[in-house]
Amino acid sequence: MIYDTITWFEERIMTETAATAISLRGVERRFGDVAAVDGVNLDITEGEFFSMLGPSGSGKTTVLRLIAGFDEPTAGTIELSGKPVQRLASYDRDVNTVFQDYALFPHLNVIENVEFGLRIRKVAKSRRRQLAREALDRMRLGAFERRRPSELSGGQRQRVALARAIVVDPKVLLLDEPLGALDKKLREQMQVELKDLQRNLGITFVFVTHDQEEALTLSDRIAVFSDGKIQQVDTPENLYRAPATEFVASFVGTSNLFDEEHSLRLLGMNGMYTIRPENLRVSSAGDEHAGRLTGTVRNRMFIGANHRTIIDVDDIEVSVLEPADSPNRSLGEQVSLDFNESDVRRLRADEQSAAHVALD
């Protein structure tokens, strides 16, 4: 039996068991005849770590700006905790934003940066100093309160930006690719800290990223964007194991795609299908357990715990992930491939936007 991807029911169950923090209905953002966001419907639950994932120009950052109030939708409604806000100014919304470039004030020291939002809200000086120090302690930056941003590392500046965002106790924290400027090791460290922070605070995080590994690592659920539309909303595991469209299958992880012609000819199935590389098994062409596909080894790469083997099957390339201790494959060797039918996923056509411009 081949399993189609059915995620609507699972998503409905999740959104009905908790209060909705953010709701978008029919949201569009157009610039003339082109659409940056095209008919987005989305519900994000309270206390959720929700990621908006997609390539540059997919519309994810535009949606974040619409939620934050930095831009207005051309059409549709945006609600925060059940109240329409699409016409409210950003400072009248109970949200805060952390940017990729941190947006710290260079002339203020660390604690003054953290206090800034409280000062705008006219919190008494003694109270805001106490709250700012508590936020800095949470970020393990208590010893740096007198330093200027220029005297901090990238990771420390990011923590200051987070402290400034959470000190005003927003219901929703919006994060616009906040880890993009960090190196790989620091980014991985900050991922752990972000997830711990969100779990401890219990507030809603909406995280924008183009890094699918980052989204899979951090998120409770993910919306995958392409050309101003949402292709799929799901948990990280379901998104990876059961991609709904060709775009999701190819953008999230590595996948072998079989169009309708190849599906019928090679798999004996009608429609478009995908198989993840780790779900394919390789054996020698003459092996008694030879699989249902045959091909020729074209390339083999060592990638740490695994080998990635590229096999020419008919007129397409098939990628296979094998354990590092698997039998060596010689270039030009004839091999066969097999798989479990439960690991084959049927794909629907991508959601298409009639007119779109890269504004992300």
Results as ranks from 00 to 15, higher is better:
191 Q>Y: 00
97 T>M: 12
222 I>M: 12
193 E>G: 01
133 R>A: 07
118 L>N: 07
337 L>M: 09
88 L>H: 02
358 A>M: 15
313 V>M: 09
287 D>A: 15
87 R>T: 00
321 L>V: 15
187 R>V: 00
231 Q>I: 03
53 L>K: 02
346 R>N: 07
343 D>C: 13
243 P>K: 07
191 Q>W: 08
100 Q>D: 03
98 V>Q: 06
74 T>D: 13
154 G>S: 11
50 F>R: 13
330 S>E: 10
359 L>G: 06
263 S>Y: 02
148 R>I: 00
249 A>S: 00
142 G>C: 03
279 N>C: 02
93 R>A: 01
142 G>V: 01
151 E>P: 01
333 E>K: 05
105 F>H: 01
283 S>Q: 15
289 H>W: 03
21 A>Y: 06
194 L>K: 01
149 P>I: 04
354 A>S: 15
195 K>C: 02
94 D>P: 02
13 I>N: 11
264 L>K: 12
14 M>Q: 08
214 E>P: 13
73 P>C: 03
311 I>C: 02
169 D>H: 13
199 R>N: 07
245 T>F: 03
227 D>C: 03
355 A>I: 02
90 S>A: 15
124 A>M: 05
165 A>P: 00
148 R>C: 00
4 D>Y: 08
28 E>R: 10
272 M>L: 07
264 L>D: 08
264 L>C: 03
198 Q>I: 02
144 F>Q: 06
350 D>M: 10
113 N>G: 14
240 Y>W: 10
318 V>K: 11
12 R>V: 08
129 R>Y: 00
321 L>S: 14
225 F>I: 10
208 V>E: 09
33 D>F: 05
195 K>R: 14
313 V>Y: 01
298 R>L: 08
234 D>W: 04
63 V>C: 05
294 T>E: 13
195 K>L: 06
114 V>M: 04
180 G>L: 02
180 G>A: 15
237 E>Y: 12
331 L>W: 01
222 I>Y: 06
242 A>D: 14
66 L>V: 02
9 F>I: 15
154 G>W: 06
159 R>Q: 09
215 A>L: 10
299 N>I: 08
270 N>M: 08
183 D>W: 04
292 R>L: 13
129 R>Q: 02
345 R>E: 09
184 K>S: 12
15 T>A: 11
252 V>P: 06
83 K>E: 11
251 F>K: 03
186 L>P: 06
10 E>G: 09
264 L>V: 04
89 A>N: 12
